[in-house]
Design a protein around this nucleic acid. Sequence first.
DNA 1: GCCAACGTTGGC
DNA 2: GCCAACGTTGGC
Length: 136
Amino acid sequence: MNYWLMKSEPSAYSIDDLKRDKVTHWNGVRNYQARNYMRDGMKTGDKVLFYASNADPTGVSGIAEVAREAYPEKEEPWVMVDIRFVEKFPEVVTLETLKKTKGLEEMVVTKKGSRLSVQPVAKPEFDIVVKLGRKK
DNA sequence: GCCAACGTTGGC
DNA sequence: GCCAACGTTGGC
């Protein structure tokens, strides 16, 4: 079981959209590193932190899971996966919180200039973020 | 909306 | 293969 973080701008697709749709095609990734993680790393059932970028506030808004492993987009050489809604956090775990939480120092998303829209997350990091997200 | 940090493209 | 120009991402 692997853990991931995937970014989406809420104006384009939010956790509420995913909650409504239950499952969605995660298409439009146009970065090779991100594509490689989807193509080579993601397995059905892997858990995903759903991250709202360019938002107010920006941060992790919930959890999803991989419903279908990578398959080709119409446009070569890109691929997409299917993502299923798992839960929405009562409150967004903000980027600010992630940055100051012990144990998350190595998370890719907290590093300056990190634009990777699909990134791996270590299990301990995943667990810390989920705990923060479920806390009222 | 600004702009710094990245990634990609294309001329040479 | 270098690197300037350009396009995009994403925090603020």
